[in-house]
Design a protein around this nucleic acid. Structure first.
Lengths: 119, 119
DNA sequence: ATTACCGTACTAACACAATAATACAATATT
DNA sequence: AATATTGTATTATTGTGTTAGTACGGTAAT
């Protein structure tokens, strides 16, 4: 698994988000084994504690579960994951538009700006 | 001056950004007096030190200048302000689109999502 | 001149995220 | 059975952003 981490923002939620997306997309199916805490930490270049925290928090949402000594596994909660991703997308879009508006852009101007985005 | 501060992000750059936008828009003209550090801190509900830091950093960009004992004033650098705002908008849009893409959205899907945004 | 306001500087404290380094317990592998 | 790998827990440390409090010196208004 590849990680796109923005080091200017807290790592932990980013890990949660990206795994949640994978769950929602079906990249992990029910009871699939995730990479270990230490493996993720290594591949993402972050501290195991941060990964452990992210996993533990996702466990509370019921998205994944752990078996002590064995590993972390995907739950059968694709719909939950989809819901969370949908909410995240909504929140992030709202934040973006809100910020652009605070910069003096009208909603129409923002839409046009995004429409013409090329990258 | 009203402040829209996202407490989930560092305050200092947000203050800089919003003042920079005002400068770029011409809300402050050359040599106009800004609100005092303590006033801004009060109205924005943040610490004077944070405002002082923001102002001092903007001074280094040449956007504003201070007269000891008197106050802070807008420089005659509208073009610089416009340039900075333009760059900020670009960076923030890129970050938004990048993040949405990391969530599995294609550029076209993002454009459509924003286009249909209603708020 | 006195008062009030302003910029400026400094130290301390706090909260938070992340890192570092262990250690222990449960499972899997051999 | 022995070893390696895994989750879990704990404590300490670091860095950063912010707050808090105080103090000093310059400017403006009365």
């Amino acid at each position: 698994m590849q990680w796109k981490l923005d080091k200017n923002r807290p790592i932990c939620p980013q890990i949660k988000e990206q795994i949640c997306v994978k769950l929602a997309r079906g990249d992990f199916k029910a009871h699939d084994k995730l990479s270990s805490v230490r493996e993720v930490a290594l591949s993402a270049g972050v501290n195991p504690n941060t990964v452990q925290k992210a996993f533990a928090e996702m466990e509370q949402t019921g998205l994944i579960y752990s078996v002590r000594g064995s590993g972390w596994f995907a739950s059968d909660n694709v719909e939950t994951a989809k819901g969370i991703v949908g909410a995240m997308v909504k929140i992030k879009t709202a934040a973006y538009i809100n910020e652009m508006q605070s910069f003096g852009f009208s909603l129409d101007e923002i839409k046009k700006y995004v429409e013409e985005w090329d990258a």
